[in-house]
Design a protein around this nucleic acid. Structure first.
Length: 322
DNA sequence: CTTTAGACGAAGTATTA
DNA sequence: TAATAATTCGTCTAAAG
């Protein structure tokens, strides 16, 4: 049992294993929040935008075979846009190939021309695929009101997966949805499987499968969704005060520290923490409202709520002096 | 009457043998 | 692959307010 008053007056801290503790360089506060719509990291005390907390798609993101490595050496450009990349690619390819052809002897000339034509053909196919993917990416991100960073990350994920030949045989739109879902999690502004699935033609189950396919085949390391990442959006949707939202963060952190969150649905945790915080702060939302906003059931809220109450030693009957 | 608590089985998931 | 355990969900009943 934990001292409730102590917990409720403690400042929220984002302690988690996978992300570093961030301290605001301006005011020294550790109360750092993620702006849901802009995908920015902001100090809640002074409002300073700390940084664009981008996960570096460095070495661990890359899983090429030798072929891909060869292609990549030629095609790598530093733009996130699917379409911009294409024109650059063609331009370079043109220059290189033509230059070589003109100055080479005939034998290698034929060889190179054949190879060049082959590349143009496959390039057109790739072009069509990425163009369609880009259209779907625009549509989906717009519908889900995704921040720009998520869209760019999703584009990267899709393009790299595609170029690695991992998406063959799968519907373009479906794989774009999986990439968007993955990107939202990487950027720490996650949407639930249900939310993404509802904005597309595929089922939640199918989306989860495709997401797994991309993650496994590309060896991406995407940490599990954390309840606190879902909390701000939920809290806003429920029109809960800032104080309640921060209290909910504290509650979740405490629950996490007590190892009571493993294996539990992050949405359920976030929803019940907000539900409890709302009660404590006398701005209660009933279970039905919270459940609806979080896309879970009241049953789950009750389960988590009961656990949280036990953890915090909170009893609704004797909290009046709080 | 509305909200909350709890029980039960069904269904999907993760882990282990 | 199959069995097992833990979890969520839908539904129902009942208590609380």
């Amino acid at each position: 049992m934990i001292n409730l008053a102590k917990i409720l007056t403690k400042k929220p801290e984002f302690h988690d294993e996978t992300h570093e503790q961030i301290v605001c360089p301006n005011c020294g506060s550790t109360d750092i929040i993620t702006d849901e719509t802009r995908g920015e990291t902001i100090c809640s005390q002074c409002g300073l935008v700390i940084e664009d907390r981008m996960v570096d798609f460095g070495t661990e993101w890359r899983a090429y075979n030798q072929d891909e490595h060869d292609k990549r050496a030629r095609t790598e450009v530093s733009t996130y846009s699917l379409t911009n990349d294409l024109s650059t690619y063609i331009g370079r390819e043109n220059r290189d190939a033509l230059g070589q052809v003109i100055s080479s002897e005939k034998q290698s000339q034929f060889f190179r021309m054949r190879r060049w034509q082959f590349r143009i053909k496959s390039q057109e196919s790739k072009d069509r695929n990425l163009l369609k993917a880009n259209r779907e990416l625009d549509r989906l991100c717009s519908q889900l009101e995704m921040p720009r960073t998520v869209k760019e990350t999703a584009g990267q994920i899709y393009k790299k997966s595609f170029e690695a030949g991992m998406l063959k045989g799968y519907p373009i739109d479906s794989m774009v949805a999986a990439a968007v879902y993955a990107a939202a999690r990487v950027r720490r502004v996650p949407r639930t499987l249900d939310e993404v699935a509802d904005a597309t033609q595929i089922t939640k189950k199918r989306l989860a499968q495709l997401y797994r396919i991309i993650v496994n085949r590309m060896n991406y390391k995407i940490p599990p969704t954390k309840p606190t990442d879902l909390l701000l959006r939920l809290g806003t949707e429920l029109a809960l005060s800032n104080a309640s939202q921060r209290m909910a963060v504290t509650i979740i952190n405490e629950a996490t520290a007590q190892k009571l969150t493993i294996g539990k649905d992050p949405s359920g945790l976030a929803a019940s923490a907000l539900y409890l915080a709302g009660i404590i702060n006398k701005e209660k939302r009933n279970q039905q409202t919270v459940a609806k906003a979080a896309h879970i059931t009241e049953v789950t809220i009750r389960h988590r709520y009961k656990e949280l109450v036990a953890l915090l030693g909170y009893f609704p009957s004797n909290d009046e002096e709080m």
